[in-house]
Design a protein around this nucleic acid. Structure first.
Lengths: 232, 232
DNA sequence: CGCTATGTTGATCCATATCAATAAGTGTGG
DNA sequence: CCACACTTATTGATATGGATCAACATAGCG
C-alpha cells in the first residue's frame, strides 16, 4: 500500500488514536484496490478473511434466500463493512457489491483481531464502530416493524433532506429500485407511495425531490430520534 | 453484592478471562436485584446508566412508535442486554420489561467503559458479545424481509425444536401474542399460520408443539444457516 | 368462582405484491 | 451521432397476504 494512502487511512476514526507501531503492523498485510461498478466483493456464507473499508464510491450490502433478494444497506465512504464477521471470525451474513467505481482497503481479519488485543485505543474505536452498526440495524428493524411503507418512505426522505442540510430541494443518491428494496417494498409500490406523498407536499422529478410543505410532511412522517437520528 | 453472587457472575463468558483487580473494580459499584413480572426496567430514550445482565427469569425488549408497539427480542439467562447503548453512552433504543420474576445485575455503564479500556480480555469478551448481538439483528432483518409470515413461523418452530435437542415434541416458552409480535404479525394471523402449517406436519396444542413430518416441514421452511443458526 | 387477558375463528377490509403494458432513460456498437 | 437493446420507472388492473373488527371460547389469576 502506498504511503500517501496509508496517511489517508490513518486519519480515519478507527485508526487515528492507535500507536504507530500497531498501525504499521496492521497495514503491512493490507492492500487497496479499485473495483468497477457491480462487482461482487463478498458473498454471504464466505469466510471473513478481510475487513473492508470503503474509501470512495459506494457498496451495497444485500442478502438472498430462496430465490429472493433484498438490499440490507448501502455503504458510503468512509466506512468499514463486515466488521462483526471479522471479529467473530465467522462467515459473512451479507453479500457486498460495488454500485459504482469504488476504492476499497482490505485488512486481513486475523491482523485486525490481533491488533484489537494489542492496542486499547484501536479496540475502543472498533467497539464504538460496532456499537454504531448494531444501533443502525436496530433502528432499521423498528422502522420496518412499526411503520407502513409510506411512512418509511416519508421518513427516509426527511433523513435524506437532513443530510442535505435541510434544503427543501435535494437529490436521491440511490436508484429507486434499490431504495425500494432497502425500504422493504417493491418498485411499483414505491412509485405509488411517492404519489401518495404529494398530498403532504412532496414533489419528485427523477432524482430531484422538493419538499414544499415541511411541517405537513413531518406531521405525517412523525420522525423519531430513536429511529431516524443516524448519529445517535 | 454478596460474594456468592460475585462468584457466579465471574464465571460468565464476559468476565471469566479478566484480571481479578479489574473484576473487583467493576463489581464494586454493581448490584443485583430481583424484579416481579411485567416490570419496566428500561424505557427507550433513557440514558444508559447501567449495563444489565439477566441471571434468571426472562426479559422482553420492545419498542414503540406512534402508538404502536413491537417485540424486538426476548432475553434469556445468562445474557447481557443494552450493551451497545452502554458502550456508546447513548440513549437506549429499546425498552425492557421483565416477563417473569427475574434476577438482574446492574453494572454502572461508566465502570464498564473504564474497564473496557483497562482490561484487554474484558474488551475482547465485550466486542465478541456485541458482534454476536449485531449478527442476531442482521439475521432477524433477513428473516423479516425475505420471508412471509408463515415461513418465519415455520423456521421459528424449527429453531425452537433444535434448542429442544431436535425432539419431535417440544414446548413454546413464549406467549403466543408475544411470539406473533416478535415475528412481525398479529395474533390472529399467527393462529391461522399455525393452522396452515398442519399441512406440513405441525400439530399444536397450547404450548405443546409436535412435528409429525420433519422433512416435510423443512422442505417448506427451507432453514438457512445464514438466517437460523443462532450460534454463528 | 368470577373476572380479565389470551387464543381462536369468521367476515371483511386494506396495504402491498404481482402481472402486464408502456414510457423513458442509458449505454453500446455500427 | 444515431439506432438498437436493455434496464428502470411509471401506471393500470388484479390478486392476495395480512390486518382489522367482532364474537366467542378458554385459561389464568386474584
Amino acid at each position: 500500500m502506498p504511503e500517501s494512502e496509508k496517511h489517508h487511512i490513518r486519519s480515519l476514526n478507527v485508526f487515528s488514536q492507535m500507536a504507530d507501531s500497531h498501525f504499521d503492523r496492521l497495514t503491512r498485510g493490507a492492500y487497496v484496490q479499485n473495483f468497477p461498478p457491480m462487482i461482487d466483493l463478498i458473498a454471504e456464507g464466505d469466510q471473513s478473511d478481510f475487513l473492508h473499508i470503503l474509501l470512495s464510491g459506494s457498496v451495497e450490502l444485500y442478502s438472498s434466500w430462496n430465490g429472493r433478494e433484498t438490499t440490507m444497506s448501502t455503504v458510503w465512504p468512509v466506512s468499514t463493512f463486515i466488521l462483526a464477521a471479522t471479529i467473530k471470525d465467522a462467515p459473512y451474513l451479507m453479500s457486498a457489491r460495488t454500485l459504482e467505481k469504488s476504492r476499497v482497503v482490505l485488512l486481513p481479519s486475523s491482523d485486525v483481531r490481533e491488533t484489537f488485543d494489542a492496542d486499547p485505543d484501536f479496540a475502543r474505536a472498533i467497539v464504538t464502530e460496532l456499537a454504531q452498526c448494531y444501533r443502525s440495524v436496530v433502528r432499521n428493524t423498528k422502522d420496518l416493524k412499526l411503520r407502513s411503507s409510506v411512512e418509511r418512505l416519508a421518513n427516509y426522505l426527511l433523513r435524506q433532506q437532513k443530510r442535505a442540510n435541510g434544503a427543501a430541494v435535494f437529490t436521491l443518491h440511490t436508484e429507486k429500485r434499490r431504495l425500494a428494496s432497502s425500504l422493504g417494498m417493491t418498485p411499483e409500490n414505491m412509485s405509488r407511495a411517492l404519489k401518495n406523498l404529494r398530498a403532504y407536499g412532496v414533489q419528485v422529478d427523477g432524482n430531484r425531490v422538493t419538499i414544499t410543505d415541511q411541517s405537513d410532511l413531518e406531521q405525517f412522517a412523525k420522525p423519531s430520534p430513536l429511529i431516524d437520528d443516524y448519529r445517535v
